[in-house]
């Protein structure tokens, strides 16, 4: 198992390298630059700026310089927030983004699995149909529609919760963004859990457990939950990626000063070092979390573990 994890960790290195190369090339292929303005600068100044940021060097040379920095944890200076380095900007934004993402993920897993299990136990009942109908709706509506609707309803109409981050200092200001971010994932995980739970409940070993006189709660908890969670666990990788992309939209809409908001601002301002830094950071995060999921998978399924 340890061997497997280490091997996967080694594989992550070329994957990440590929991401860096592609992102670097794409950013450099984009037209325009951070220092282009309405009024063209005198060529001497332009040349000075280019020299200061090493933009006058050949592309391979620039890349080597950049990669060297990344290896030391230095993503270079931000082109727009001139007093900060990209690493500082990301570092400052991480705590709030992490809180948002982790809470959304936890909510999605907890509620999704519970609802899915309940629907599976009451298969084809009115409750099941209602929940699966809602789930389908949840999957179909994108975050950028849900979030403004939430603000309109809970913040503007009912005035229960703050509409944006700066509007309050209470912990409740996270509630709307977390729910908006988690909702599509809740729906998807609920559907996934229901399907796999129904399959597991129909298997021979569950019939054995019933023949042994175990109650429904014990059957779910001790016999069905673990195998039913395998497909849900495999979805965790894509779910993490979806939460990350979702957070870019949600942070912008609710005005949360997280990594996602910097990403959007960076893209709009052509702050290419910032964009590049965040892409690499996200890629590393997704790779790492996927690795954790794979290791967990081995723990859940003994037949994989003993291979």
């Amino acid at each position: 198992m340890l061997r497997f994890a280490l091997l996967r960790l080694l594989w992550a290195i070329p994957t990440l390298l590929l991401v860096i190369v592609l992102a670097f090339l794409m950013v450099h292929a984009a037209p325009g630059g951070p220092f282009d303005a309405e009024r063209a600068l005198p060529p001497e100044i332009e040349a000075n700026i280019a020299r200061a940021y090493h933009l006058d060097e050949a592309l391979p040379q620039q890349f080597a310089r950049y990669l060297g920095g990344v290896l030391r944890g230095d993503f270079g200076p931000s082109y727009r927030y001139r007093d900060y380095s990209v690493s500082e900007l990301i570092g400052n934004a991480i705590p709030v983004s992490m809180k948002l993402g982790a809470l959304a993920m936890a909510l999605a897993v907890l509620v999704g699995i519970s609802l899915g299990t309940l629907a599976a136990l009451r298969q084809n009942s009115a409750l099941d149909r209602l929940m699966m109908g809602l789930a389908m709706t949840g999957i179909s509506i994108p975050v950028f529609v849900i979030a403004p609707l939430f603000i309109l309803f809970f913040a503007v109409k009912l005035q229960w919760l703050p509409a944006s981050w700066s509007g309050s200092t209470s912990a409740w200001r996270l509630l709307l963004p977390v729910v908006a971010l988690a909702l599509p994932q809740i729906a998807y995980i609920a559907r996934l859990t229901r399907a796999s739970m129904i399959e597991v409940l129909g298997s021979d070993f569950i019939r054995t457990a019933r023949a042994q006189g175990l109650g429904t709660a014990a059957i779910i908890r001790y016999h069905a939950m673990k195998p039913a969670m395998l497909p849900v666990l495999s979805y965790m990788g894509p779910a993490i990626a979806a939460i990350l992309t979702g957070s870019v939209v949600v942070e912008e809409i609710f005005g949360i000063p997280g990594v996602g908001q910097f990403f959007v601002r960076g893209a709009l301002n052509r702050d290419y070092t910032l964009v590049l830094g965040i892409v690499i950071f996200y890629a590393a995060l997704v790779i790492l979390l996927n690795l954790i999921v794979d290791v967990l998978y081995g723990f859940l399924d003994p037949r994989i573990r003993h291979r």
Binding site: D204, F205, R207, T208, Q212, G213, P227
Partner: peptide, 25 residues
């Protein structure tokens, strides 16, 4: 009510012990 009988009053052995035992436990 059946659970009061299962195990304590009657037990069953199925044909295929591979699928009848939980592979995850």
């Amino acid at each position: 009510m059946l659970n009061l009988y299962r195990t304590r009053r009657m037990g069953i052995v199925f044909q295929d012990p591979m699928s009848a035992l939980n592979p995850y436990v």
